[in-house]
Design a protein around this nucleic acid. Sequence first.
DNA 1: GAAATTGTATAGCAGTAGCATACAATTTAT
DNA 2: ATAAATTGTATGCTACTGCTATACAATTTC
Lengths: 128, 128
Amino acid sequence: MFIVVDENDSRPIYRQVADGIRALIAGGELREGVQLPPVRQLAADLGVNLNTIATAYRELQAEGLITVRHGSGAVVASSRAIERADEELRRPLRTALTQLVLAGLARTEIMGMVAEELRALLKGPKRG
Amino acid sequence: MFIVVDENDSRPIYRQVADGIRALIAGGELREGVQLPPVRQLAADLGVNLNTIATAYRELQAEGLITVRHGSGAVVASSRAIERADEELRRPLRTALTQLVLAGLARTEIMGMVAEELRALLKGPKRG
DNA sequence: GAAATTGTATAGCAGTAGCATACAATTTAT
DNA sequence: ATAAATTGTATGCTACTGCTATACAATTTC
């Protein structure tokens, strides 16, 4: 699949997978009704245990983004629910911005920093 | 002190403390040479174990932001080293922005989202 | 209805966070 | 000097978490 696990990333694997799928849903690459890969297949692709993927699926199900059914698999949920993916994506941004505000940075300083980081990100993205 | 631990925060306590002190240094509230509170005092203030604070201090020392000495305490390091606090502050922002980029959001969308979140943050900050 | 496919539950191991308590270095007061 | 107080450090323990291997259960396919 279209997901990468990075062992330098401090997030646990199951969360990296969940975040990755959430991003795919929020970005429109995975639309309502689309079937997700079986836990065994995705686990094999990423070289991890099937339970690790199952945990990621359960996390997404708890958020209402997918529907998981025993025997038939996982499916992207209704587009009504998908709107929440945007909200989920905002959370880490909010946390990061809160830290900067608490550090005493002014709004303009923060916006400048964001623009700067964004420029660097969009300029030279890592090639898988 | 001027630091809060939030049990709803997923970060471990020692990291919340380290992040908090780092923010104070980066924001200029704690300047070079200033003495940090003894581990026991800060631990008592926050209602945690002294080793938890000691771990936070060690993390900051590893980053070169403070100097810890057995018997005399912890002191904010040279302003040369302090410049790195800015870099440490940027890291979570960078992670959050990377997620948004991977989700397929355009630069302008992200900037808009940031401005929006920032407005909400600066408008109604939580009062202690 | 048997076989294949898919998710779920259980059990175990390793690492981490936090705590209580004891130890060691430095400073302060005698 | 040296005893006492202050400060950081080390040890040992418990609970929890992330990950794995393996067994179990539901659904679909033939």
